[in-house]
Amino acid sequence: MKLINNKKGMYITIIIIGAALIIAGALLNIFKGEELKSLSGVCIGLGAVLVSLFSGKLYVYRIGLKHPEIQRKKDIEVNDERNTIIRDKAGAKANNIFVWLIFAAVMVFILFDAELYISLVLAVLIVINSVLSSVYYYYYNKRL
């Protein structure tokens, strides 16, 4: 029950943070104008994403409270061992494909003489992905 309440509290907190970001972005736009235009845009965009995403989650959570049987079925679907395996496998495959896509993008950017920093950022992402893979491999190797 405590966990459920924490979930609701977490959703509401994130919605408030999102709303605060939207307001901050709007205020920056009004008072600072061109000077901080990009920062204002980032604040509004991030805020809008947080508010819409977590409002949806809060709505689903409230439906779950009103209809415990639907919530139970949903929990079973989420925690089902076969579904978990499918999700993990799909995620791993998608990640592998994504790394190759980023690698291809790096090659394309280099071939077309794009700004060097773009290729470097993408290359760093590939390195971070490899490091994370190794860290998680080590972690699960110790745990399982």
Binding site: I76, E77, N79, D80, E81, R82, N83
Partner: peptide
């Protein structure tokens, strides 16, 4: 407390359970 699809997959032998 598993999905109906899991039971279906088990019965058809496509999936081995934990």
């Amino acid at each position: 407390e598993v999905s109906r699809q899991t039971i279906g997959s088990l019965e058809s032998g496509r999936y081995n359970p934990s």
